[in-house]
């Protein structure tokens, strides 16, 4: 599997990461080496094998619809890097 710098750009945008231009070639090489190694999986015959997302067959774990007190707002906001007394603040995000 070939990993191009364009692919590095694409997955960087998806991941909201921004590698320096000079890092991209090296990242592409590194990722290609790892991804190529992962390609050994192609040798494993998985025809007809159901993908296993949850390792144990537990099912239907639910809770009753009963309200509990919410967290006091100070607790919610105390770790925020930018906030006012009521809300988290970010640069303009509304169109």
């Amino acid at each position: 599997m070939k990993i191009t710098e364009e692919m590095v750009d694409y997955i960087s945008v998806l991941s909201r990461l921004k590698p320096e231009p000079e890092e991209k070639a090296q990242l592409a090489t590194e990722l290609e080496r790892i991804v190529s190694y992962m390609d050994v999986l192609n040798r494993l015959d998985t025809a007809g094998v159901e993908p296993l997302s949850h390792v144990f067959p537990i099912k239907n774990v639910m809770r009753p619809d009963l309200p509990c007190p919410s967290l006091p707002r100070e607790g919610l906001l105390k770790n925020a890097p930018s906030e006012d007394p009521e809300a988290f603040l970010v640069p303009k995000a509304v169109e």
Partner: peptide, 27 residues
């Protein structure tokens, strides 16, 4: 029209003061 949120026990009531119907899970 449930009383609580889908994945935590915070109220779903409309119109509370900002960030008062929240807990670690829903945030």
């Amino acid at each position: 029209a449930t009383r609580t949120k889908i994945f935590c026990s915070c109220t779903t009531e409309f119109g509370g003061a900002p960030n008062t119907h929240c807990c670690p899970v829903c945030t």
